Computed example of a mutant assay.
Amino acid sequence: MSVDESVQARPQRRAGRVARFAATITAIVLLLYGVPWWTLLVAGNHWPAAVVAGGTVLVVAAVATFPMLMIAGHAGRRADWAARVSDTELGVVWVLFTWSVLGNLARLALGLAGVADPVRSRVVTAAVVAVAAVLLVWGYVEAMRVPRVRRVEVRLDRLGPALDGLKVVLITDTHYGPIDRARWSARVVEVMNTLDADVVAHTGDIADGEVADRRAQAAPLADVRAALARVYVTGNHEYFSGAQRWVEHMAALGWEALHNRHIVVERGGDRLVLAGVDDRTAEGSGVPGHHADHAAALAGADPALPVLLLAHQPQQIGGAVAHDVDLQLSGHTHGGQIWPFHYLVRTDQPVLQGLSRHGARTQLYTSRGTGFWGPPFRVFAPSEITLITLRRG
């Protein structure tokens, strides 16, 4: 292939990728809206024609406006009102889609049991609507509430006796965003300050938006109390929202931004390395100087000391194992946030939530997250503030 042909081929390949991506998104949107439309309005319900027509018009309008609202809310100038509408709509349609699929399985079972339409289809429709409504109301309450405290003990072989019982409070994925949660943020800090933390850690995805837009929601973090250290690393969402500005802002709030670096804390003569790496998406973000670098994070650290590493995604555990980290703290997964999305999360991440062991030395604790992303719902995936107590042996 000549140089000219190669130059001409590149735009064609990009155009092909864009077309495939657009086709995939279109297919997903049509499926998400189409299954509930068919289940609730068509199928064998035999609703009056006016009901079917009116419902169909609403569905078509939702399908047509949803992409525009998502773009307006999450790209360019990021209109918060559009993000609130589209995010809520996404959560509602996901729950309706999930339970419509399950409802159609129930429809088959009822058919085998001899129940005929329209009774069979109307029973399924009523059940899907009722279950979805209950789950959405409950899921909204769960998303907006101050998280419960989840208490975990982790034993580390190299932990010195004076550090036995050290308290680490972990928050992550606060996702300060289009819904103003400044009061929620302050209440989260109030709960954290009742836990008498030695170390407080935030493992990223602090906000969806620039510092200038989310400053009020993040402000209560300045009031977090910790006896030894407050430490923070970037998540993938920082790389949509001015990562370096968030690093600098967290430092201004009094937090140690562990941007591929470490600090050492000491109690009673025993020491612990607190290290952090950038999110794994950092290198591809184009933000100068940002990339996950375990070697840089641990450069100069005493190899005999226990290491607690902050890394946003559980998938970064490979680097922790390779560098003999004792405990990695992560978030990112949200525990799936809205069931059954956790099945998709597990295709990308080695762990969904909780404590797990990797290799001979390394343990990983994955939080379900303190806030929520996008849809203001949490279904079968409660948020958490985690109190981790380190023990010897």
Rank of each mutant, 00 (worst) to 15 (best):
W138F: 10
L163M: 13
E142Q: 15
R151A: 11
V134N: 07
G160L: 06
E153C: 02
V149A: 01
P147W: 09
V146Y: 05
G160F: 08
G139I: 06
V149C: 01
R148E: 15
W138H: 13
V141I: 14
M144L: 05
R151Q: 10
D164Q: 10
R158M: 02
M144C: 03
L159I: 09
G139F: 06
G139E: 09
D164K: 09
V141S: 12
Y140P: 00
V137L: 15
R155Q: 13
D164H: 14
A132V: 04
A162R: 13
A133H: 03
L135H: 02
E142C: 03
R148Q: 13
A143N: 07
R145A: 15
V152I: 13
V146N: 05
A133R: 02
R151P: 00
V154E: 03
V137D: 10
M144S: 09
D164Y: 12
A143V: 06
P147V: 08
R155H: 14
R151C: 00
V137T: 13
W138T: 12
R158H: 08
G160M: 08
A132K: 03
R150E: 12
V137E: 08
L156Q: 03
P161R: 10
V134Q: 06
L163Y: 10
P147G: 09
P161T: 08
D157R: 13
R148F: 03
L135D: 01
G139M: 06
V131S: 08
G139P: 04
V137M: 11
V146C: 06
L135A: 05
A133Y: 04
A143P: 06
A143D: 09
A143L: 07
